[in-house]
Structures are given as C-alpha cells and as structure tokens.
Design a protein around this nucleic acid. Structure first.
Length: 156
DNA sequence: TGTGAGCGG
C-alpha cells in the first residue's frame, strides 16, 4: 500500500519545484553538487544569485523547440501588452535554442507576465520567466572573435 | 533522439 502513495507524492513534488522561485529552482534543476546543506532560514536569506533588476524585458527559458515567437507572444499576452516576443533561433539551422525574450509595454505588465507564466507549461514544457539582464555590448553588432586580421603563418 | 543549460544578431 505504500506503493500506491508514491505516485501522488512525486507529482506533488514536481509541481512544487515548478512553482518555486527561480533562485530556489536552480537548486533542484542544475547540478546536484551545488545542493545546499544550509538550514532553511539561512538559505532564504542568502540568495546565491540575486534576480536581475526589474525590467519590461523578460528572459524566458525552458521553451519547447517547437514554440515559436508567435506562440510566445500569445501566451504572454494574456497578462499584459506585449511589445515584442522573440524565440532565439540558430542562424544556420533555424532551430529554436529553447529560450526567448518577451518585452512588455510596462513594468507592471512584465511583473504580471512573470507571475502568470513562470513555472507554467507551454507546449508541454515547464518554462521559466524572469527579468532579462540588461544587455552588454549593445546595439551595433560586433562579432565575438577578432577575425579582422588574417592568421599569421610565419615567413612574412 | 535538434537530450535541455542558458541572456539575443
């Protein structure tokens, strides 16, 4: 009879992980070596990685590879006015990289977007919504590696 | 097994 109790317990645990705040979730989802042995109260007052500053722009991860920018927009539009929604895709293959960005019109809407979509299912996958980090290396596109100079093979 | 953490061209 103990077996019969196991399944509901597991599904409850899954639900709790999915609905936990992202900082807590990484404790479960990322590498097990970072599992904390601190007391519960010590954990709650030491966020290892503080959330990004509130922004109208959201970083959404955990997306299904089949989720499109349109699907992302319609899902998040339930909670506010979406200015822009984009699933990041690989340039050459065109496949989704499994994450994207949603920009709301206002901070209030973006907060509601996180509350409404973080930890929820989209196209069969639990997605994570959080404030996007301000982008470094802004606007004009600059390649990461410096290929401006041809390689030097010696002999002048 | 576009196997799955991440912050875009």
């Amino acid at each position: 009879m103990a077996m019969a109790m196991r399944l509901p317990a597991i599904s409850r645990a899954v639900t709790e992980v999915a609905s936990a705040p992202v900082g807590l979730r990484r404790l479960f989802c990322s590498n097990a070596s970072r599992f904390s042995f601190l007391s519960p109260q010590a954990e709650s007052q030491t966020p290892a990685r503080p959330q990004a500053e509130p922004s109208t722009n959201l970083f959404v991860s955990g997306l299904s590879k089949r989720t499109t920018s349109e699907g992302l927009r319609t899902a998040f539009a339930q909670f506010g006015e979406v200015d822009d929604a984009k699933v990041v895709t690989d340039r050459v293959s065109g496949y989704s990289k499994g994450f994207g960005f949603v920009r709301y019109a206002t901070l209030e809407d973006s907060a509601k977007g996180i509350a409404g979509m973080d930890g929820k299912f989209l196209d069969g996958w639990v997605i994570f919504a959080e404030y996007a980090r301000p982008r470094e290396q802004s606007q004009p596109y600059q390649p990461q590696n410096n290929m401006s100079r041809p390689p030097y093979y010696g002999n002048r």
